[in-house]
Design a protein around this nucleic acid. Structure first.
Lengths: 147, 147
DNA sequence: AACATTACTTTCAAAATGATAGTAACACTT
DNA sequence: AAGTGTTACTATCATTTTGAAAGTAATGTT
């Protein structure tokens, strides 16, 4: 093991943390997946200051997670809807939730159910190549220069 | 769809974001999974100010993601190693990485390989109950009060 | 004795946060 | 037509957080 810098540009984790490593942004994305789309819905759900919400929604829009959509011409009103990138972020939120459920699970919790079965989901990350659960087989980070 | 508050205490996502929604903390956890354990390794890898690193390592230790371990008695030297909770956080990092690879993947990237097969992993989140990939079937957030 | 290493702490200016209040554009109600 | 409500913000400003630079403490190495 060394202490080579794997922080900067090349790491895909670092890259998306640039905007993602912010609590509000993640909670906005969570609420968007929950079905919220409007400024005041986010504001009330999160108890966030409007200043911050404006900024976060703008960033998430610039980053391509949300897009603005006009839902009323008169008066002009816009809502924020998830893009494909935003929708594909759901597995991340779900895995965070699974970890939180296991390690921060005291008290009543929000659960995520499969609509058809009506059962709580049990999210697991697997490697599609080997079919093994992530964490059960040794993994290795490989730097772009070959390591 | 409503705008009920799902932010506060009961949501497992919100709960772990309390400390997790911080870029540095996530990068420290990433580096810890990469194999780093020591203050100066993290500092050099991340280019983080020592002030901040001290604070983040303390928080991660308090939160039970890392624990301090004495690796030299004279001089007294401590390193930070992942706890079970910290190790179980790997799937989250891996899913973040997978998303980042897909949507922020320009240029050379750090990859994660399975040590035995030598191949890059293809992380997918599935619901262990139905076996379906997360995102392919409709899901529903259920609030503690029954919704 | 002098220098190096490791794991920090101190100081302080700059940036980010967030509470409160205000605004703009319109619709709706009396 | 005047007043009230709704939605999506912006402005102001005190507090908090961040992070760069330098310093410190305990010890090992030459």
């Amino acid at each position: 093991m060394n202490d080579k810098n794997i922080c900067a540009d090349p790491c895909p984790i670092a890259r998306c943390l640039a905007f993602l490593g912010d609590t509000w942004s993640l909670l906005i994305l969570r609420d968007a997946h929950f079905g919220l789309t409007r400024f005041d819905q986010f504001r009330k759900s999160l108890g966030i200051a409007p200043t911050i919400l404006t900024r976060r929604l703008a960033t998430l829009t610039e980053e391509g997670m949300l897009e603005k959509r006009l839902y009323s011409e008169r008066p002009p009103r816009e809502e924020y809807v998830l893009t494909a990138a935003g929708r594909d972020f759901l597995p991340v939120l779900v895995m965070i939730g699974a970890w939180g459920h296991q390690y921060r699970g005291e008290g009543l919790l929000v659960r995520i159910q499969d609509v058809k079965t009506g059962e709580d989901i049990k999210p697991v990350a697997i490697d599609a190549v080997t079919g093994a659960k992530i964490g059960t087989r040794p993994l290795r980070f490989v730097l772009p220069d070959g390591n």
